[in-house]
Nucleic acid binder design. Structure first.
Lengths: 329, 329
DNA sequence: CCATGGTACATTAACGTTAATGTTTACACT
DNA sequence: AGTGTAAACATTAACGTTAATGTACCATGG
């Protein structure tokens, strides 16, 4: 409740506040025995420095803000872990907030993080890219991850979504599937768009069409995906291969197929995206596209901090290469 | 990069810093036209108050720290959402960190949060309760959730784990199961212990034993649960009912049973705990015990803030009643 | 013996706020 | 005219730090 301050320590030690500060920071201009005495008192009182006051003074902010879309998708849990590890290794702390794919919450999160004077931001831009954050005006160092931002101008760390589409299409072609479908997320989201393009083009190179009525875009929760899958397969029963935007949604899709009594993978093959923890444990185990979640977080945070500290005018865009993981679907 | 300050606004408006502050806070002692002029300038410059500086001055900290064990279990995502909503409705912000069920990380998280001068803490105590946080020494208002703390003295918001065990045992008895098993988490964790006691006692009241070799304790990740289930069922093949510590682990257990070619629920019935999003979408859909995740977070955060602001010497302990959700396992 | 320089401190100021206290001006009232 | 008072501002101080600057003391050297 009442925190110990430098002043408390100074009074007990009978020295000035500044001397205590110097003693704790191993600065010069301090006698060895004074230093040890101060250290002992500090230890005893359980002093924990007030980082907020220190930051106010030094103008080094040392906090990285993170805005992700979904707190309940374990895909992001791994990314957060990566960010957290990188950030704390470099002496920073992390504040993570969720936008729930909602522009209002995204804006509120942004304001909250700026009010807390974060040194930089890592953002997964929310669904509505037309109206999403105007990155030019953020005026805090920032990068987007997972998805490109609205203007595609700022730095981003994403995976090669186009390549994901290519991989999945290739797999379906190898299996001799002829009637592919796609269950995607909001059509404007960059990674959704890129995946779809890579998927469709690759299919078309082998003269397999992806008709408009075989693709559907829905919300990013399991239930929406469940509903979308049912709707899609009622409309177009002959689909024998389904690429789903992410594994989380694919869980709903698999359930829908089960309820429709469509056998996976005999009647229909399903491939998700992300390779979340659940994927290998599902029955049947979900085939998917693996992306380096942890390192995506770790590397993006490391780069952001590098940018902040070195003040490079960096505009780095990293494309991680995805990897197809074939399991049972 | 460079944030607008009150000073900037004051210079443009040609007034003192304090006048700007009063204008923005709707204080008295300010002329209406001056106020409007200042507001206009503020708006134009996109001023966002520095909460850290304000908190330093007012000594109102307005941040709640949260330490949870698992970032990647969606059970906690819902709790966090509840905390976040409660906290922000009351004008606070939230910093959430994960301990990964690890004492060191838990300690580091605690220090980090204290260094950021949080007003209060919501903690899911980590696995190793013997050595876990010494809550008496935290000296910041705090409550534990989900699990009791080491000394069981401080305030906590948990669900009635004993009752969970009773419900599951009752269900197994109703189905005529005679050889129950338990796949649990660390034996010292309060909710694990309580669930097991309720489960075992209820079974024994109907003269069904829960032998030692039918219970196993393992790590809280899917893979550990998968391994544990395999091990348990190789050792004791006749188990026909399995209560699993949580749904997340149950996903691994279901997969293990599938790999062992044991039919669910024909040969063995499985009930998890938490009712996470995935539960209803699994094939077969997981029967489970539902707990009010969101409201657990919401209510605990509301209470904590009440405690902080009213300075009640509160020692509130809330037991939420769990609810059995019967699905297909 | 006094200037020089180093050691080990203290003092002061600043970060961006907010709260308490001062100050100026205008105007009403006796 | 002189006093009181209220409105509308400014000034100052404080929150807990850290950085820059100041100072007392002692030892050293020419």
């Amino acid at each position: 409740m009442k925190y110990v301050t430098l002043k408390d320590i100074a009074e007990i030690a009978g020295v000035s506040i500044n001397t205590v500060s110097r003693a704790l920071h191993d600065k010069n201009d301090i006698g060895i025995e004074t230093k040890l005495r101060i250290r002992a008192i500090t230890e005893e009182l359980g002093y924990i420095p007030d980082q907020t006051a220190a930051r106010l003074r030094t103008k080094k902010k040392q906090t990285i803000g993170v805005i992700i879309t979904h707190m309940n998708n374990s895909f992001y849990a791994h990314i957060l872990q990566g960010i957290h590890d990188a950030v704390s290794r470099l002496g920073y702390t992390m504040i993570a907030l969720g936008s729930n794919e909602n522009l209002d919450e995204e804006q509120r999160a942004l304001v909250s993080l700026k009010a807390n004077r974060v040194a930089g931001l890592i953002i997964v831009p929310s669904q509505d890219l037309i109206n999403s954050l105007d990155f030019d005006r953020i005026n805090v160092p920032h990068i987007t991850i997972v998805r490109k931002g609205r203007l595609n101008t700022q730095s981003y760390f994403i995976t090669d979504s186009h390549q994901s589409g290519v991989l999945v299409a290739g797999r379906f072609l190898d299996c001799g599937r002829t009637s592919p479908g796609y269950i995607g997320f909001d059509a404007m989201v960059s990674c959704n768009k890129d995946r779809l393009v890579g998927y469709k083009k690759t299919l078309e190179q082998s003269c397999i069409a992806l008709p408009k009525e075989a693709t559907i875009h829905c919300g990013s929760d399991m239930q929406s995906a469940y509903d979308a899958a049912k709707q899609l397969l009622k409309k177009k029963r002959d689909i024998d291969a389904l690429f789903v935007y992410n594994d989380y949604m694919a869980i709903g899709v698999l359930r829908a197929l089960h309820d429709l009594k469509i056998k996976v993978p005999d009647s229909i093959s399903v491939i998700g995206h992300d390779d979340i923890d659940e994927a290998s444990m599902l029955v049947p185990a979900l085939s998917t596209v693996r992306v380096p979640k942890y390192s995506l977080g770790y590397e993006s945070a490391s780069s952001l901090i590098h940018l902040i500290e070195k003040k490079d005018s960096f505009s780095k865009s990293v494309l991680n290469t995805p990897e197809l993981i074939v399991r049972e679907t």
